[in-house]
């Protein structure tokens, strides 16, 4: 493990540690299956709308990092209620924070760039997934960063900021899983990567909200959406991989709703003869995020004008400072 040699952090015991193994699933095979979560919403039902009570709804909030030029936080709750009889969490929710630094001048050593230089960093927190992650970025995180960059590059009008750089930093505090943990173990832990698609869609949505918050010129709002096909050919929107045992293909898009364009498309698995249907499903899911984004945009505009008013009022009251 690379973390063992990192002298700038506090390291784990050199002998290595292992995640706890729970006794009941090992000893009683039937018990394991009883924990399996199932999809409780319809195939076309989005996660956000499944529970209307305020406490378990999608949360999208801008302005969580005051020192950054723009920031947002997204929380998509899990649809499976955590059971009271077991300490093993059935599914995870999605919790992502995004922060935008810039646009700011590029360092002197950087070569000339006529457009905005976009840098995206996606990092999972060590506690984001069922298995502990390290502090050094791994390939999945770099992969997500590249996909996110592709999704954002298509919307930002980069020509307006020559010789400038923009940092988009995404922190995943809790991410979706690739499969149900019980299956995962049976297959030898080889995740098929379905969870990454959900994470990518969340990253696109939250980054879009943060870019809005930073007031960076865009052609449209980009929103993420996911759709998947199960083994029996059914199309499901916003799948929670833990709830499905038999996903064969999935697709995540970065979708511009008012222009009806796609800036990012990530397709995985055996799509079959007609991939268009799957892509269309993903754009439908993205439409759900668009409506949330619109709400947030209006809200943040409202608070911004209110703050601006207050500041100008205060200016009148202020005695000027001399120095």
């Amino acid at each position: 493990m690379a973390a063992n040699t990192d002298r700038r952090r506090i390291n784990a015991p050199s002998g290595g540690t292992s995640a706890p193994v729970f006794a009941k699933p090992v000893k009683a095979p039937g018990y394991l299956q009883s924990l399996r979560p199932n999809r409780t919403r319809g195939p076309n039902e989005l996660r956000k709308t499944c529970k209307q009570t305020n406490s378990i709804r999608t949360v999208l909030q801008t302005g969580v990092v005051p020192s950054a030029s723009g920031s947002a936080y997204l929380e998509v709750p899990t649809t499976t209620a955590s059971s009271q009889s077991s300490l093993i969490p059935p599914t995870s929710s999605l919790k992502i924070a995004a922060s935008i630094q810039g646009p700011k001048p590029l360092p002197r050593s950087a070569p000339f760039s006529p457009t905005l230089v976009l840098t995206t960093t996606v990092k999972f927190a060590p506690f984001a997934t069922r298995y502990r992650r390290g502090y050094i970025r791994d390939s999945a995180e770099r992969d997500l960063g590249v996909h996110l960059e592709a999704a954002l590059r298509g919307v930002i009008i980069g020509e307006r900021w020559p010789k400038s750089g923009l940092e988009v930093v995404i922190t995943i505090l809790e991410g979706d899983e690739d499969a149900w943990w019980g299956d995962d173990k049976a297959e030898g832990g080889a995740g098929s990567g379905w969870g990454l698609l959900n994470v990518l869609a969340g990253c696109i949505t939250v980054a879009s909200a943060a870019i809005m918050d930073a007031s960076i010129d865009c052609v449209d709002m980009v929103a993420g959406g996911v759709a998947a096909i199960t083994a029996d050919g059914q199309k499901v929107l916003e799948p929670c991989p833990a709830e499905h045992q038999d996903l064969v293909a999935a697709c995540a898009v970065g979708y511009l709703a008012s222009r009806d364009e796609i800036t990012e498309l990530w397709l995985k698995g055996e799509v079959g003869a007609d991939p268009d249907e799957l892509i269309e499903g993903a754009t439908h899911a993205a439409m759900g995020s668009v409506s949330v984004l619109r709400e947030v945009l209006l809200e943040s505009m409202g608070t911004k004008t209110k703050v601006a008013n207050e500041v100008s009022k205060r200016k009148l009251e202020d005695v000027e400072m001399t120095g």
Binding site: R9, N11, S71, Q101, T119, K123, Y135, T171
Partner: peptide, 25 residues
């Protein structure tokens, strides 16, 4: 001596303009 407590911090989450990810702690 057994390192049973392993605390770590991460500042490079865009939390301040001073800590940009990609650098060592």
């Amino acid at each position: 001596s057994l390192r049973l407590l392993v605390p770590n911090v991460e500042l490079s989450t865009g939390s301040t303009p001073q800590h940009i990810p990609g650098n060592a702690p």
